[in-house]
């Protein structure tokens, strides 16, 4: 997992398997960076994720709430077709911007 800052956007590159067990560390790192850097945009990049279950949706939902409370927008990119299918079961598509 890697976090980069580019102008007003903070990008979190998630890697490996994303489940209930691994989400904890990802969530903590993303939230620490979000709170300390206060970007205008938080971008979650899933292109390095090799497996995801609905914990990925929980991760996006939780970051959406925190980002919103800090005045930051959330964008999501790099989801595979199947993972996007899981995310869209949640109705998150209405709240979060998806980039290719």
């Amino acid at each position: 997992m890697q976090i980069t800052r580019e102008q007003d956007a903070l990008t979190v590159f998630l890697t490996g398997e994303l489940d209930h067990h691994t989400a904890r560390a990802m969530r903590q790192a993303a939230d620490d960076a979000l709170r300390s850097q206060k970007p205008d945009v938080l971008r979650l990049d899933f292109s390095g994720v090799t497996f995801m279950d609905s914990s990925g949706v929980g991760l996006i939902m939780g970051r959406y709430k925190l980002a919103s409370s800090l005045g930051a927008a959330l964008t999501v990119r790099g989801l595979t077709k199947r993972d996007e299918r899981i995310v869209k079961m949640s109705g998150l598509a209405k709240l979060v911007r998806f980039e290719d």
Partner: peptide, 19 residues
């Protein structure tokens, strides 16, 4: 979307299994 486990759980577990 039903969950009793709080903000970080999506409540999609059974929906995903069914799908």
């Amino acid at each position: 979307l039903y969950t009793t486990a709080g903000d970080e759980r999506s409540g999609l577990g059974f929906t995903v299994m069914e799908s």
